[in-house]
Amino acid sequence: MTSHPDVEALAFFAEELLEPAEERTVADHLQTCTACATALDELSEVSRALADVPLPSLPQDVADLLDQRVATAVRERSAQRTEEGRAPAGPPPAERPGGATVVPISRARRRGFHMPGLLLVAAAAVVVGGGGAMLYNGVLADRGAETGAAAPLMESSPEHSEPDTAQSYRPVVVGSGTAYTEAGLADQAAEVLAAGTAFEQGPGIQENTRYSPEGCAAALGEQLGTRFTLVDDAGYEGAPAWVLFAPEGEKVDVYVVGTDCTGDANTDVLAFETVEAP
C-alpha cells in the first residue's frame, strides 16, 4: 500500500503542478485505485464547499463607519494642507559610515552620526563575533525575555557592559547583500538567519528614504504587534528593500518592505514568509 500518493500529491496533480514523471505515476495509479480516485473527487468537493459559502453583504453600520472615517481623513488632510502645506514626514535619511563589515546602525545613531570608524568596527564585532548562532541567540531568541535582548550581546563582550535598555527595542541592522526574490524568500531568509559569516555591507540607504531601517522596523513592529530584532538592508526582486525578521516562538516571521517605508504595514509590506528558527 505504499504506492498511494498522499492527498497533497493528489491536490498538486489536480493543479498540474507535478513533475512529468510523477504525474504519470499518479495518473497510472488513479486508473486502478478507487480510494485515490475518490480522494481526488473530494478535493474538488473542498473547493465547492468553500465556494458555497454565500458572499456577505456590507452591513450598513460598517458602511457608515467607513464613510465617517474617510470623511474625517479628508477633513484632516485639508486642514493640514491649509495650515502648513505638505511637510515631509519621518526622520532624516540615515548616514551610513563605510568600512565595517556589519554596521549596527542603532548603536551608531544613538551616539550621533560622527562616531569614529574604529569604534564602529568594534561595535560591529560585537554582533559579528559569535557568528550565526550568536546572531540568532543574541538578536532573535531572547526577545521575549523581560531583561531585554541586550543581555546576550553583553555576555559575549563583557567589556562592553554599559546598561543599554534601548537596545532591547532596537533591531540590529545588517547588510547581507542578498538579492531576495519572491520565489527564494524563505530559503534566503533562513540563510541570512543561519549565516555564520560576516555580512557584507548593504547597498546603502537611499537619499529619499522617509524612514531609517530601524525606524521602519519599529513603526511596523508596533503596528503589527510584533518586534523586529533584525533588519537586513538588501534588495528584493531587483529593488532596494529591507527584510525584517521577527521571532515568534519556533518560527521567524520575515517581512519584506520597500525602502520607501512609511510605517504603514498595509502598504509597505511587499512579501511575507515564515521560516523555521535556525
Binding site: 498522499d6 492527498v7 493528489l10 493543479e15 478535493l43 468537493e45 468553500l50 520565489a183
Partner: peptide, 21 residues
C-alpha cells in the same frame, strides 16, 4: 505559488470539509 498554496490548503481541508458536502 498560488496554485501550490491552494493545493496544499485543499489537501489539509479535505478531512474536515469534504464530508460537509
Amino acid at each position: 505559488t498560488v496554485k501550490s498554496r491552494c493545493a496544499r490548503g485543499r489537501a489539509k481541508l479535505l478531512p474536515s470539509l469534504a464530508h460537509l458536502r
